[in-house]
Write a protein that binds this DNA or RNA. Sequence first.
DNA 1: GTCTATAATGAGATAGAC
DNA 2: GTCTATCTCATTATAGAC
Lengths: 214, 214
Amino acid sequence: MAERPASRQGSKTRTRILEASQQLFNERGPADVTTAEIAAAVAINEGNLYYHFQRKEQIIEALFEEFESNLHRVAAAYLAYSDDPRRYAEYLAGWFNLMWEWRFLYRDGASIRRLSPSLRTRVKALSDTGHDQVRRAVNGMKSADLIRATPEEIERLVVNAWIIATYWIDYLRSRRGIARITREHIDWGASQVMSLFIPYLTPAGMTLLSMRST
Amino acid sequence: MAERPASRQGSKTRTRILEASQQLFNERGPADVTTAEIAAAVAINEGNLYYHFQRKEQIIEALFEEFESNLHRVAAAYLAYSDDPRRYAEYLAGWFNLMWEWRFLYRDGASIRRLSPSLRTRVKALSDTGHDQVRRAVNGMKSADLIRATPEEIERLVVNAWIIATYWIDYLRSRRGIARITREHIDWGASQVMSLFIPYLTPAGMTLLSMRST
DNA sequence: GTCTATAATGAGATAGAC
DNA sequence: GTCTATCTCATTATAGAC
């Protein structure tokens, strides 16, 4: 849950605005956090905040861009594992970690669309990319003979895995009443996604899965 | 997609307010619909609207109550099927229909919590009931020897089925960019949920499933 | 029960001095 | 870059006549 390294560009104040916004948004959602609150959290004046971001939606867009690049970084790291079959579990874990750090993006989709309609197409594009990545991972598992499934079954699996993962945080919060999400909740979500694949595992896949849980 | 029968209690104006609100909320979400718009849609004055509902959140709460009773009605109808194994598919279909008629409740969870914090506990309670119903249905399928699964597998299935169903509408809208949701999209969602159970089907279960698809 | 005002609020945003 | 002061505006909500 460590906050990002020195990867935010621009002035120091701008960086602090983004960090404070991310935290406040994660706590209560962009619609429920006013520009005045953000300014107070950064200990600057509201007028100053509007020097750096002329509109509130520009803060959201800047945060979304950062999330986007983080997601691509996770996907790239997964590829770096080359042929090690553990990479699938690592990829899933990396994905869930990001969802936690940027949970307001997963939880407040409706109000984000309202505040920043321009993000609509980018959210969809990112989701398409995500589907592709999951599909590639599942096909990779098939090629490595970890699972056995028809193309139709794989497509169902991709969509189901994507939905479970994407809405897991919101599910815990709104349907389970879990306010403070911990590492265990994240792991639970990952294993919930994994459970989709269990019926399709080959003996080799089963061995790998039981190794991991030790 | 037919609007509900004469089941709304109270005055005629009150009923019309609820109907107009439901439609507007489904289109654009409660946070994006002003009381002025609702009054205009009903062709009454805004002051009059505030005679029937002193706060905007009371409209949301009244609509939620109606949704609640509809959901219980669907569950009761499913029980009326007694032992016919087709009831599981019918139950699923009834559930998806409700999710379509009340899609704003599924789509705008965050802004609804903001506008009406008092609904939080009731949403959670309703979701608990929903889990129970799904669990009972899955256990019923097991007793009828339609599926074979361990208790742990069943619990995974219940959670996954619930998440896929609950977030299906939002998934189509926000991640697939589907603006106008049709009957086909609803059926797609239902079959996506069904796909979770396919690996666990017994021969009897498979026969039933293939009969249904004709 | 319904209407015509109009008050009260609180948020996003800007101008211009320092 | 930062601040103070102010503006605009949408929205909820109320008072009181009909």
